[in-house]
Amino acid sequence: MLTYLLAFILFAVGLYSVINKRNLIKIIMGIIIMEHAVNAFLILIGYRLSGEAPILEEGMAISEFVNTAMDPLPQALVITSIVISLGVVALMVAIAVRLYQHYGTFDITEIRKLRG
């Protein structure tokens, strides 16, 4: 239960930053915080108290491996999602830098040619 609460607090902090901040960089940081919250949540789902790294070593019985190893799937998912978020964040920062070149500011209230 604590897992869920922790991830949600972090997630809410990120969401607050995305919704409430006016600086492009702070919005990007909010997105990063949200992504990390979800990644931490995924890792904590697969956690097992006093578990071991899910590596099958030489001479290890399968049943022993199943009983002690942690769930490796969330870790695979997390590394995939880290790669994806890397791409998204790189694109975001690149666009923010371009916007800064055009407008000379990171404040979204001054970058508002388009109306929603």
Binding site: V83, L86, A90, V93, A94, V97
Partner: peptide, 15 residues
Amino acid sequence: VGGSLFVVFAYLALF
């Protein structure tokens, strides 16, 4: 990954 990370770095840092 190495190539694309370096491209990302190059475009951002050497902009």
